[in-house]
Each structure stands twice: as structure tokens, then as C-alpha cells.
């Protein structure tokens, strides 16, 4: 169980605002690690920093043993980190299949057909809609498409930002089932969620972020049982 991602003491600023104040965590191979916390705690900012869209002023981010803290965003994807951004950012005007093909932009050409098969296996719903224009999919399907697209680049680490956002409870269940399936298939996942209950139920380990700092960490079960987390995030 080697470490896939190691984040050490990162500090991220939006102009004068100190958004991330010295966060450190790691993700091991095959794990689901979740970052939970309230709105504005810094969860998404952390993911953006890992994927190179934002820069940390200090500290280091190591991925598979090499530092990626100064690697430009577009090269990080080909190194093996796939980021599913918040809010289902799909290519609205393209078909489902074209969206998936775009996801394989940095993948090795000989892997594309295989990856496409794998994605359709994981998301049978997408297979039924290959020729449909992505913008006409339902919210849940769009989320699946965004996740599927991220899987097309052969990621060693899949980062999911709020996959349950704005979805009906039954769809949330479906999405989390898929996350668990991916986990079983060996994908390492870093999950950011506001739905703490769901996130903790699938996570191997979890970190609680509050105003830019990690305040608690432990296994998913431990945190789900902890009084502080229950009071703050699980509604009693």
C-alpha cells in the first residue's frame, strides 16, 4: 500500500485571502480518501491545488514519488491525476461519446478503445446514450459522464469534487454505488463531499477541513462515530 499522493503543508491564497492554511494529507494506493467540511472550508481549493489550477506558496505535493507542485495543470492529467470538477463540467454541445473521447486526449491511443469499454461497463446508462448531445442529459447522467470522461485518461488517482451536488437522493445512491464499484476495481479516489454521511460510509480514511485547516482525521468509521463530526456534519 504505497502512497499515491502526499500533500505536505500547502498554503494557498486567493489574493489576500489565506484559503488553505498548512494542509497535509496523503492518499494510499487503492484507497478512497474523503475530505469533508462545510461550504468555503477549502475542500475544492485543495483539489484545485493538487491538479495544478492553483499554486501553493509553500510545502510540496508528491504524486507517485515525484513532486508536482510546480507542474502545469495540463501536464498533471497525463501524469495520472484526473479531476472531476464541481458542477458537472461537460462539453454540452458534444455527444456522450465525443465527451468521453475528449477525456482520452492525453491517453495512449491504443488504450482508448479499452478505456471506453471499461467506462461503458461502469456506466451502462451512458452506453444507452452514446449519440445523445451531452447537454440534454439529466443531472445524474451528466455527473456520470463527467466521471466517465475522467476515467478515459487512465488515471492513477481520481479526484471527485462534490459528485452528489444537486442530485436527487436516489441518484446520489447510484453515484456512490459507482464510486464503490470503481474502488473495488482498484481505482484510488480522493473524494470531496458536503454529504458527509455518504462520503464517510464509503471512505477508507477521511479528513475534516475547517476554514483552511485539517481539524480531524481518521478512518471513515471512526469519524462517522465521532461526536464532533456528528454534531457538525451529520445532524446530531
Amino acid at each position: 500500500m504505497g502512497s499515491v499522493l502526499t500533500v505536505r503543508d500547502i498554503n494557498v491564497y486567493y489574493g489576500a485571502i489565506h484559503a488553505i492554511k498548512g494542509i497535509s494529507f496523503d492518499v494510499n494506493k487503492g484507497e478512497i480518501v474523503t475530505l469533508i467540511g462545510a461550504n468555503g472550508a477549502g475542500k475544492s481549493t485543495t483539489l484545485h491545488t493538487v491538479s495544478g489550477l492553483l499554486r501553493s506558496r509553500t510545502g510540496d505535493i508528491e504524486f507517485l514519488g515525484s513532486s508536482i507542485a510546480r507542474t502545469p495543470a495540463h501536464k498533471i492529467v497525463s501524469k495520472g491525476i484526473s479531476h472531476v470538477p464541481e458542477g458537472r463540467r461537460i462539453f454540452q454541445g458534444m455527444t456522450v461519446e465525443e465527451n468521453l473521447q475528449m477525456g482520452a486526449f492525453v491517453a495512449k491511443p491504443e488504450r482508448i478503445a479499452h478505456n471506453l469499454e471499461y467506462v461503458y461497463e461502469q456506466f451502462p446508462r451512458l452506453k444507452e446514450r452514446t449519440k445523445q448531445i451531452a447537454g440534454t442529459l439529466s443531472g445524474g447522467e451528466q455527473q456520470m459522464l463527467a466521471m466517465g470522461r475522467a476515467l478515459m485518461s487512465d488515471p492513477r488517482l481520481l479526484m471527485l469534487d462534490e459528485p452528489s451536488m444537486g442530485l436527487a437522493p436516489i441518484l446520489v445512491d447510484q453515484i456512490f454505488e459507482i464510486i464503490q464499484n470503481l474502488h473495488k476495481a482498484g481505482t484510488t479516489i480522493l473524494l470531496v463531499e458536503q454529504n458527509a454521511q455518504m462520503a464517510l460510509s464509503v471512505a477508507d480514511r477521511a479528513y475534516v477541513i475547517e476554514t483552511g485547516r485539517i481539524t480531524l482525521s481518521g478512518t471513515g468509521e471512526e469519524l462517522a462515530r465521532s461526536d464532533e463530526v456528528r454534531k457538525a456534519y451529520l445532524g446530531g
Binding site: S51, V77, S78, R89, I90, G93, A150
Partner: peptide, 15 residues
């Protein structure tokens, strides 16, 4: 793709 959605473009590794 970048025209359609810049953030999605960045997330799939487009420069």
C-alpha cells in the same frame, strides 16, 4: 472543447 467549457477542458489536460 475549451470554447464549450474551459474548466472541463483544463480538467482533461488541455493546455
Amino acid at each position: 472543447a475549451i470554447r464549450d467549457n474551459r474548466i472541463a477542458g483544463e480538467s482533461i489536460g488541455l493546455d
